[in-house]
Design a protein around this nucleic acid. Sequence first.
DNA 1: AAAGCGGGGAC
DNA 2: GTCCCAGCTTT
Length: 352
Amino acid sequence: MNAALDKKTFRSDLLAWYRASARALPWRAKPSLYKTVVSEFMLQQTQVKTALPYFERWIRELPGFDALATAPEARVLKLWEGLGYYSRARNLHKLALAITARPEPPRAPAAWLELPGVGPYTAAAITSISFGEPVACVDGNVVRILARLTADGTVFRDSSSAAKYFTPIANALVNKAAPGDHNQAMMELGATICTRQNPSCAICPVRSSCAGARTLSPEQFPRLAAKKTEEQSVCRIWFLSTKRDAVLLHRASPSARRLAGIFELPSPADIELDEKDLTTKNAKLVAEQKRSITRYRITEKFLALTPGAPLRRRIDARIKTSAGMLQWIALSDLDKITLSGPHRRIVQKHFA
DNA sequence: AAAGCGGGGAC
DNA sequence: GTCCCAGCTTT
């Protein structure tokens, strides 16, 4: 730790800045344990701006742990549609069931760690904000601030090892009199001032504590090894019923590792088609889109399938034996099911 | 079009 | 410890 860093000065400068300039966010107005939990789940892997409309609607529809616990999972997933990483929604649902099953919610960070979807970061966020537990949240924002504050040039292999490295430092720095506000202030500082590129050091409330700000390029911290990306190409099928009033969709099983319980346009493999079934005569490329997820860059091609009678019979037989993984969904019912975000968009754009 | 963010869980 | 998850924003 930087010997020059005066913790007391840092804490009070940070807190004064936060209390004067915190953004007005819906989970900060009239805070409750439930709102804190929902917001922290939504903010895993998702930026504030994206989560905002989802949070407002969620609180309107499911205003407390009881409402969430008694809601059917399909409704929970539908409310999450478009946010991605649906295991967060399923974990949040299970967490509500666990919370309502006990006389009162736990208070200790270690107890929250046992609940589904709660890791070190989320346990620290929830318990510091709701119960004043003196534990630090360590996310990418906090790593960035601490690496700059101490001008630490360590090269980390990835963000999780960086978080582990900075956790003791972050805990030593927490303001024990106001850990919730301290943690939120760190996140706020990272999101608005101590940004990854072009940090606004000139207006930073803790500039006088920061060793990085005294270097030529504070943005060089933290030093993370470059990630390698992998190209992936996938194909999806747009296939209508004979009457052209329903589309064939694939629903991942509730225990699937990816997109559990979520509908997508089927891949050729999902309906047991191979290349020779997809001739230029019966399969036409109607759309192509690129998207990114973690280290993958995915090129997705959408083929409209208009098969002859024998192939159609084969697919019909396959649907019957698919145990609900393949379903005809009426075009008028598309709004009633949960589609993955990218497939929802492609359907609206090209097939609506 | 490419690069970056980001915590949790399964193994 | 390592890998996977299947999405958006910023540049």
